[in-house]
Computed example of a mutant assay.
Amino acid sequence: MTNVLALVGSLRADSINRKLAEAAAHHAPEGIEVTTFDGIVDLPFYNEDIDGDTPPAAAVAFRDAIAAADAVLLVTPEYNGTIPAVLKNALDWASRPFGASPLSGKPLAAIGSAFGQYGGVWAHDDARKVAGIAGAKVLEDVKVAIPQSVVRFAETHPREDAEVTTLVQGALTALADASTEQAAA
């Protein structure tokens, strides 16, 4: 079983990207389990002064969740041309402690949806960049950007969209394959 931890960059309860993460969990191929970690909202802004011997409980729980996962799936909208602050902050917490972070070497893919015509590609590119610098093994070739989300999913959940199902299954399969390759190395 490959355990994939999903981090959603939108905090809205009715977020299309949250629904996209739900679609990933619902349609995960056999042998892959997707769990969404909702605790990134509880992370304080990263500050090395509070990340010492006793980091905040929310940071410990977050790092433990990443450590327990085989791979990470970032599901993010685009805010003003980049990733939401809550996701950037989570990646900052995940990058520490330097040299021994739970994200180090972990397979990671960035996907998502946005209202615009490009589906959030700038945010996904930035998420891959930040995650790579933070130490993740970023799957650069996994690209799922679903445009015009507000219109496309106005009356339907992403899990009911055949194209979305195919795309998220492909992303999850790539993560599982990368995780298996890493374990074998």
Rank of each mutant, 00 (worst) to 15 (best):
A58W: 10
I111D: 10
D161R: 01
H27G: 06
D92C: 03
P77G: 08
A65Y: 06
V72F: 10
D126G: 03
Q117E: 10
S104N: 09
A69D: 12
I40F: 03
G31F: 14
A61Y: 01
A21G: 13
G52Y: 14
A162R: 01
G81C: 06
T173S: 05
E48H: 13
K129E: 09
V4L: 10
P84F: 04
T173N: 11
G120Q: 01
R96C: 02
L7E: 12
A176G: 11
A127W: 09
E22F: 07
A174Q: 06
G52L: 15
A162S: 04
V151E: 10
D126V: 15
G31Y: 15
L5N: 14
I146N: 00
S15Q: 13
P55H: 08
A21N: 12
T36S: 15
E181G: 01
A21L: 10
A68D: 15
V60Q: 03
P55L: 12
E78C: 05
I111P: 08
S113C: 08
S15L: 11
Q148I: 03
A65Q: 09
P147C: 04
A154E: 06
D126Q: 15
N80I: 09
A154F: 03
E48G: 14
F115M: 13
A174D: 03
D53C: 04
G81A: 06
G99A: 01
Y46I: 10
G132L: 10
G112P: 11
G170R: 01
L20S: 04
L74V: 08
E181M: 05
R12T: 02
I111H: 07
K143R: 09
N17P: 11
A58D: 08
G116F: 02
E181Q: 06
R152S: 07
Q117W: 03
I83S: 02
E155W: 00
V164H: 02
Y79V: 12
D53Y: 04
D177Q: 14
T166W: 01
F153M: 02
L73H: 05
A21D: 13
K137M: 03
L103V: 02
L5C: 14
S10K: 07
N47Q: 13
A59M: 14
T173W: 02
D64Y: 04
